[in-house]
Write a protein that binds this DNA or RNA. Structure first.
Lengths: 359, 359
DNA sequence: CGGCCGCGTGTAATCGATTGCATAAACCAT
DNA sequence: ATGGTTTATGCAATCGATTACACGCGGCCG
């Protein structure tokens, strides 16, 4: 008669309700198959015993874990973490758990990814990084009995995976054109990492906008970065060493834009007085930076939500999508104060940030 | 002879290696119990069949999921996401998976938390939020057979949970004293949410520093916020409506500090010329904001790592800690440009941000 | 030589839930 | 009343891995 029983199982509930375990199971997962009276007895028994499902048992039998695996290049990056947030919300409403996996372990990473997928811990993979080796990935997927995979944010070219993303080329083109429309002719770019798909697409878009306007891209105006603030800051030093400087810069993301502006400011170069700047992502801080940043807003929440939706649809009905899904969302240019008309050379306008203090 | 077999199981490996499943299992988890020759045959069989462990089967038998549950108030917040990052790294090296759970669903949240914990999907809980109902939490833990719980970042007072945190009272006191040391006497505070433990502790620290310096706190200088930029921005409006304004403000975190400064800037009030500002957290953007923000740096990575370490230790040896663990880490004041000596009233100094442009 | 020990291995029970099949009861139409 | 259908339930196998227990064998000691 000791009270220290282990957590109650479906057996306990069955005994208490005077039915078989099969009936309890059905009462839970297919209530319409159970008569009303029995259902009530089972419900009561569950309440009294404090029963909760053992997911391991169910997973074993059903060969599904009710869990998705989200693989992320960098959780700390607010861009990714807000997508993760949207994914988690969607997964939660559909009854799925979310396992997260950092992707920075090189080859070790693929091993871990493989472990998770092949060990029945996750029913599907949501990949937020296009730089994972395609063949390896496909092999893993097949080995694991065609586990559904959805790639979000970044594209894996020609790989035939389901994808949810924004058109980075077009958006980068629009961002750059915004600068052109303001009269700028000397336009630089802070690039992302060399082998990153997104980063390349944005470079392409930048190049197209210049070409369309009949402008020739200057290699020395294209600064290598890697999407973080420090790399933007470092780019500022290189910018400052130039004799012939751009009057406007398009950065591959807000963080490098901010780092860049911060570097320039140390040397007294102010935005938008001396330089115009467009970022990418519209992080929360963009609207509160000094100056508030003009930027391309990506529909992060929508991207995360739709990717999670698609993945779960696919998990629940593998036949759902005969051909690879490809959802392309549109980014939106948010014009703030970091961009302005090209001022006549040698006469920087001074109308900004110079209002008298009122304290 | 069809090739479309399901994923191979331990049975397949056993058949191939001409041993029993027991031996295969032992070869994997206790190699020293298996003779060298057999071990080699099993290894080869695993290689050939492409076997991978089915975690569900193991979990069911061992009643452990090799997974920890991390419950977070807001994944998007860079403060939390960088802690999550550290947690994930530590968990990965110890062979654990990480399930994330957003906490903003009110009562629904506890249900989900409970579901995860009681369903053998996670072996322990790492809670990054002190506002969860203590009794409920303890009940869940006990019901789930004393599942280990570690609370990080925020304290649940008198609850006896293992905790890893920083001393918010002391740190807030130090932040405020920094302003006092610079000559400020009229010091405001942007508070966090009313019922948040951390937010209260920082208010307390702020109050102590004032008291120590013989200053009387002014209620109208304490602005309610909720840790995000918008609330800081809103606080700026209230600040501006005051006749008698503080010369310095300590914000409960960097985000509200940034929102606040952004709001002031719109009305021409510049930092540090017109006002000094101290934040809290040292987010990545703090050092690149305009001006670079003086702030209390919390050891986020250390906190995440140590909390994960403690939790996993506890999972692997529940007797490990007889008395509740309580690790208190020290925050560090990082002085940048957002704080300066109190300028004589009516004569705002103009030495900042006014260097001539060099473009 | 006989008994004991320990190593390496196999047998089979076990973890908890689901589900195909069988069966009983109830209902319906003729 | 009879056969057929539907509904509600139980029985027992099953998912894959682990592990308590048993067994056989070789070596060692007295």
């Amino acid at each position: 008669m000791s009270l220290d029983r282990k957590t109650p199982t479906i057996q306990d509930v069955a005994r208490f309700a005077n039915v078989s375990t099969a009936t309890v199971s059905r009462a839970l997962s297919a209530p319409e198959k159970v008569s009303e009276g029995t259902r009530a007895r089972v419900a009561e028994a569950i309440r009294v015993t404090g029963y909760t499902l053992n997911q391991a048992g169910r997973s074993l039998r059903q060969r599904s874990a009710k869990t998705i695996l989200v693989a992320i290049p960098d959780i700390r990056n607010p861009f990714f973490s807000s997508i993760l947030d949207a994914i988690e919300r969607e997964a939660a409403t559909r009854g799925y758990g979310v396992l997260v996996l950092n992707l920075y372990f090189g080859r070790e990473t693929i091993r871990r990814l493989q472990d998770f997928l092949l060990s029945n811990r996750a029913d599907g993979l949501l990949l937020l990084d296009g730089s994972v080796d395609t063949d390896l990935l496909r092999a893993v997927s097949q080995q694991a009995g065609e586990i559904p995979i959805v790639v979000a944010c970044e594209e894996i070219p020609n790989a035939g995976f389901h994808t949810v993303l924004t058109d980075n080329v077009e958006a980068a083109e629009r961002a750059t054109r915004h600068l052109i429309d303001l009269g700028h002719r000397r336009i630089g770019h802070i690039m992302g990492p060399e082998h990153n798909v997104v980063s390349r697409e944005r470079i392409t878009g930048y190049g197209r906008a210049l070409a369309d306007a009949g402008l020739t891209p200057q290699p020395e105006w294209q600064f290598r970065g890697n999407f973080d603030m420090e790399s933007g800051f470092a780019a500022a030093a290189r910018f400052l060493s130039l004799n012939d400087r751009p009057s406007a810069v398009f950065a591959a993301n807000d963080e490098s834009a901010i780092g860049f502006l911060s570097g320039l400011r140390q040397r007294g170069i102010l935005c938008p007085r001396d330089i115009s700047m467009v970022g990418f992502d519209d992080l929360a801080v963009a609207s509160h930076y000094v100056p508030p940043l003009t930027t391309m807003r990506q529909p992060r929440e929508a991207m995360g939500r739709m990717a999670a939706e698609a993945l779960i649809d696919l998990i629940e009905d593998p036949e759902a999508l005969a051909i690879p899904l490809r959802i392309v969302l549109r980014s939106e240019l948010v014009v703030r104060e970091s961009t302005g008309r090209l001022a006549s050379v040698g006469r920087p306008s001074l109308e900004v940030d110079m209002s008298p203090a009122r304290i």
